[in-house]
Design a protein around this nucleic acid. Structure first.
Lengths: 219, 219, 219, 219
DNA sequence: TATGAATGAGACTTCATTCAT
DNA sequence: GATGAATGAAGTCTCATTCAT
């Protein structure tokens, strides 16, 4: 998303550690996003103000508006940042090694990872409620990216189904499991632990109904 | 079902300013709620204005504030109206006759009913996204009521589990299935139909894992 | 434009000198307009601020926006106020007595009156430059009203022409003479006096060319 | 014709930052002016932005500010460009050949030329409304140049008057006729044609009142 | 010299809520 | 009780201009 290779100029020599302009901008943008996230979480999107965000990030308000056309764009950028981050995590589950695990184990690992993710990013919840409410299309788009990734993973676990089946399964899993993780992330630790087990049970039994007895569905 | 003491106001959840006692008042309040719902749906909660709502409902703004202490109270009242409505529907599923159905049939009937509900109330979605974002406690409280109802139903279907199990199962079902219905309600008709089948499969397999092989969980 | 008869209620009795609400509003609106005019004159329309206008008029900014949807509406209201005022003045020139004057005298009187008007309303200039630049349609509309009045007057001075002639003559007179008065109003007193004579000469010779040499009547 | 000392900046009228000395610079400046004119016409002076003008002219904003000290200077430069252009046209009317024409013919020719000018420069109108509103002194100064030229022409048409007479006549003609042309330039073609005739009638009768019966004014 | 990212004061406007009538 | 004009804090966003590179 943002240029991350150290700044080579076109002559091939590494002149500086990073192109200072880009590095400085990148740092600023990220600081703005961090601050915005904090504010959105603490006061809600509607109550948070661009002025305060700029002040907290120690950038002039004008600079903020140079990177984000309006308040909504900040929220959207946060959503994208999280989606990118989450897709990154999912990448781990596409290695042959992990894909070779028995289904129950795979599901356990995946849901543990997701749980971790939500634990590490307590703001995710707050951000996406607002995204859902104020920019449903963006919310859809973000979920779609996860669903796509999931569509690519599923056939590697079990390739006995039709392509369209994978699409619907991915959709259902991402939406249901995702929501449960999201709900879980707002609960007390004990309930949270228990919910993780339930998420795994829900996911496993749903997948198993497809992978185990395909041809003889009971549904 | 709905709190009827008039002026409790400190606890955050109960915030009814005045109970409409007479038929005329009741009609007015309902008109206000209908209009508010329309406005919230079309422009979003934040963009809708109390002035416009009052105007559309042909009620002086002052009168509106006699029934609702503030803008949020209108949203909350809408949420309660829907929750009451949904709990009403669930009552049908507590008759001995229906409870005697085989689990798969019961699940099918229940999810069909829920699907119907969302189809008949296209505004539900819009209302609850806003509730979720701006008054999470209310959202929780509304869900809790459904979960409670569900906790009462489950043992009647199969009484082999511990009480706490029913609580967690009800929680997971209401959250996951509820969310899927909610997602489904925003989709194209074909996908929607297919999603209903998936919801049933998800719910059935999850429940079945408890009811069928209790004592030999795989999870 | 604004209710000016003293406030009679529907029962026919004069209860108060004026309906207090209307009177108060009317006073406020006029105070706002006066202050706005002053500000527009002193700093120009673009530089003047609604906040300052409200402050100077000692009304809350919100009240200002209750009467004027936006800054431009204030300018427009000022333009209308002047146009109404000027049409009022023109009414004097529609009495049979004045219309019976010889053409040169009529022109002299009319231009003197116009000169007076500009002398009494030094802000007219500043207001209409801004109107012209930022809302040409309004400027046109205001002029059109004067032109219409003029179209009604001309045949009473001399009825020998076709109706369409009066239209074009009125148009030319209002635009040319109006502009000259307007230019004149910004000049030093001596030049201003001399310009008044020139305006009269210009108008008289133009009108005379129509009224004198077809059929040769001069008034 | 155009001030050529580079940096005079105190007197308000002369505000040229840098004289474009080379052909390439000259082309750039002209492109900027063309683009600015387009922007001012389409959106109005206030709404147009220097950034956009620079972008449209494919010039870095910094370069723009090397040629124009501020936004107003761009408008002023446009006004000067038009005034120079118009004075150029007037030069044709100072040849002995044309000056020898009978007054009515001379007036007809001159007004036709002016009409042409406005037809060829549809932006003139838009530019000068803004100049009038935001920098009246410049507007005066531009008109003064035309008036001066006119003062030189008049005695060549008829030398029977006092020098001061020519000054006032030129002033009135330029202001009145100029404004009528300006008004006319915004009208529909048919009206515009008719207005040209009226302008000629107005100008001729006014001039004739001086040249024909000087010494026996009726005014 | 040329560039264009950075600046930040301040403009306009909204709207939930009150309270005098 | 009913009404709706009045309030004013505070929000978002713009843009002419500068100056470090």
């Amino acid at each position: 998303m943002v240029e991350s290779t150290p700044g080579k100029t076109s002559d091939g020599l590494v002149r500086r550690w990073r192109k200072p302009k880009q590095a400085r901008s990148w740092a600023r943008v990220n600081r703005m996003l961090d601050v915005a996230e904090k504010n959105f979480m603490e006061q809600g999107y509607a109550a948070a103000t661009t002025k305060q965000i700029a002040a907290d990030a120690e950038v002039p308000i004008g600079s903020l508006y140079q990177f984000f056309p309006d308040k909504a764009a900040i929220l959207q950028a946060l959503a994208e940042r999280y989606t990118d981050l989450f897709k990154e995590r999912l990448r781990l589950f596409q290695s042959d090694e992990v894909l070779a695990l028995p289904l129950p184990d795979y599901v356990v690992r995946l849901t543990q990872e997701a749980d971790c993710f939500f634990r590490e990013h307590p703001a995710y919840r707050a951000i996406f409620v607002e995204v859902m409410a104020t920019m449903p299309e963006t919310d859809e788009a973000m979920d779609d990216q996860i669903i796509q990734t999931c569509i690519e993973i599923l056939p590697k676990l079990n390739d006995s189904l039709e392509p369209t089946e994978y699409e619907i399964i991915a959709f259902v899993l991402v939406k249901a499991i995702g929501h449960l993780h999201w709900v879980s992330s707002g609960q007390a630790p004990e309930l949270r632990e228990r919910l993780l087990l339930e998420i795994q049970r829900l996911a496993f039994n749903y997948l198993n109904s497809y992978f185990h007895d395909e041809g003889s569905e009971n549904n």
